[in-house]
Design a protein around this nucleic acid. Structure first.
Lengths: 188, 188
DNA sequence: GCATATTTAGATAGATCGGTCTATATAGGA
DNA sequence: TCCTATATAGACCGATCTATCTAAATATGC
């Protein structure tokens, strides 16, 4: 079955928001690119703000599913590195232009508390996944390890955009290996 | 002497762009906040795009001076950690809302090649400073160490916005210490 | 005091913005 | 076949956007 008009709009808006920015992407551009008329958009979404929320929410759901699938099949003691690897996969496949949540935080911090909260929650969700993985790997004794890994992953967003996926992801892996090895060697 | 109208406009525009985003900040808001009339802005800057460029360029000049002052007075063998510390100072003082260069890259990637190139150059300048510091600390044998530190600093931008400056900067310091210790222990 | 810049005030332009409305057409399911 | 939901086409709204213009006012430097 073909994608519903609503799904077409979500996918098109996601791409345009991601590549061009939220405020710089007008409703007319979205509906034109989606091959749909303006009223169809407003039939499915109450406003541009609602569309942004829906785009971010559906993307984040996909992102979490991607992460959870990877950690679910990770060998014992390797949940954290599996999570990092899955994050790298995601970047390479869907996020070469920088993190859309970070962009949303920047554009809507003083413009829409709801959108900003949603994007912030996406980041804390990732941090929570890292906390969980560190705990499953029995490394929770290392204070701040999950936050350290979180910062590395956030940094890899910029590195991918600046240095390319290959270099950035290889660097990420190497650095995470160093951090995990250091944490394991300081076992209590 | 009081700041020139041009400087008032630069400072006001920098603050508004940083807090509200570039596309979301209109010319009228800038001139009103600067206590100036619209034609004064266009007398000093050819266009909004030129204003954005000037804002980013002057801010980046200040940023580099801040970094260079810190590394110039760093004890031997501690250039890299001094650079990291200076970066943390900058974040805490001037960049609690996320990196303005990263925001500019996101908003202008497909909208202004000039602005995007300027923001990208700012990032590569930081990376170059890190390469230089790593070399001065005689750690250049560690492949990718400068890029690793770069990613940590980029990640700290998001961590400051999400977890607060205190936690984020303490985490940054701890992680950088781990990375530097690991690099030193693998001396060839 | 005079000449030269700079700034002000405000009207104006054309484009685009998000959003609404109506009337028509086209699906799909009972 | 009929009914209902969805989509289309396009006019329309007020607001806002960047940018320009002119004429009067205000500094600044000699």
């Amino acid at each position: 079955m073909p994608a519903s008009k609503r799904d077409q709009l979500l996918a098109t808006a996601e791409q345009l928001f991601h590549e061009q920015g939220f405020h710089a992407t007008g409703i007319d551009r979205i509906v034109a690119a989606a091959g749909v008329v303006r009223m169809t958009l407003y039939n499915h979404f109450a406003s541009k703000e609602a569309l942004v929320m829906a785009v971010l929410a559906t993307r984040h759901t996909r992102f979490l599913a991607h992460l959870d699938a990877a950690t679910a099949s990770a060998p014992p003691g390797q949940a954290a590195s599996a999570l990092v690897e899955a994050h790298g996969d995601w970047l390479q496949r869907y996020s070469l232009h920088g993190c859309i949540m970070a962009k949303a935080m920047g554009e809507f911090a003083e413009h829409s508390a709801e959108i900003h909260a949603l994007a912030t929650a996406a980041k804390t969700d990732l941090l929570a996944r890292l906390e969980d993985a560190v705990s499953r790997d029995s490394l929770e004794h290392h204070a701040g390890l999950a936050r350290h890994l979180f910062m590395v992953l956030e940094g890899s967003n910029m590195a991918v955009a600046l240095l390319g996926a290959q270099t950035a992801l290889a660097d990420t892996r190497a650095m995470v290996d160093t951090l995990l090895a250091s944490a394991r060697s300081n076992t209590p």
